[in-house]
């Protein structure tokens, strides 16, 4: 039994079925990539795993630590150890990154405003963030800024990875984390993620392009097309896609020559 099991997941959006029975096993210590063309259901998979209310799960289970994630609210999933790095992180005006991160950390530790000994101390907070912030080239003023407010595309993505470093999830889903990143940022982000790799962390990279996989080497690659996984294998699958693109399944050009910029 895998640490994280997606079983026959079916998801609809506004009555239209997008995921048509997705199954996937992921163990901590492993990095999996889910690749697919536009409209294949990649983002739906990440949102559904985290519990976005607009994505209706019609069938399936997702098991982590003996619990079916699909029965839990998003915050409960997060506290159980799931993390989603958003493709388009949301702006929350007036809430500082510091306050946001501290609140999230406190909840993760079971501090709900009562037992102060569970709360993260300022010193601890500092030490948790200093390393990743250096690695991600974020200066200290960053924590005083409002959540994603006025952040550049690269800053948003780096902020997502910083949160991941602080929250130390067991299962991290990275949704198109490389989209909109310049080459320096992608390096900082990848280095930070690679630094977190280890026996306690399972990573699910969701991506259209192979670029990020040159920086973060996956152990397994799955190809998602039209709401179903059509192929699974080792890193060689990504190499193949690099050459052929998704043409076997979808009418799209090969990836090698494709634009590596923004991906919708």
């Amino acid at each position: 039994m895998a640490d994280f099991e997606i079983r026959d997941l079916r998801v609809s959006v506004e009555g239209r079925e997008i995921l048509k029975g997705v199954s996937l096993d992921l163990n901590r210590g492993e990095v999996h990539a889910v690749m697919g063309p536009n409209g294949s259901g990649k983002s739906t998979l990440s949102y559904a795993l985290m519990g976005h209310p607009s994505y209706q799960v019609t069938a399936g289970q997702v098991w982590l630590k003996g619990q079916d994630l699909l029965q839990l609210a998003p915050d409960e999933r997060a506290r159980l150890g799931v993390y989603l790095a958003f493709q388009y992180p949301t702006v929350v005006p007036g809430v500082s990154m510091r306050n946001f991160l501290r609140t999230a950390l406190n909840w993760k530790r079971g501090y709900d405003g009562k037992d102060r000994s569970k709360a993260v101390s300022p010193r601890e907070f500092q030490s948790l963030l200093t390393g990743p912030m250096q690695q991600l080239r974020m200066d200290s003023t960053f924590l005083s800024r409002y959540v994603n407010d006025g952040f550049s595309g690269g800053e948003k993505k780096r902020a997502e990875i910083l949160q991941m470093a602080a929250l130390k999830p067991e299962i991290a889903i990275l949704d198109e984390t490389d989209s909109g990143l310049d080459i320096d940022s992608i390096r900082y982000v990848s280095e930070t993620i690679n630094g977190m790799r280890g026996p306690d962390l399972g990573v699910l990279i969701i991506t259209h392009y192979t670029r990020i996989l040159q920086f973060i080497k996956p152990d397994y690659v799955h190809v998602l097309v039209n709401g179903q996984i059509v192929r699974s294998g080792g890193p060689e699958v990504a190499d193949e896609l690099e050459r052929t693109g998704y043409s076997e399944w979808a009418d799209e050009p090969a990836l090698a020559g494709a634009d590596l910029g923004e991906v919708s």
Partner: peptide
């Protein structure tokens, strides 16, 4: 959703 996805 964004805030809740962080455990809040």
């Amino acid at each position: 959703f964004y805030l809740m996805s962080r455990g809040i």
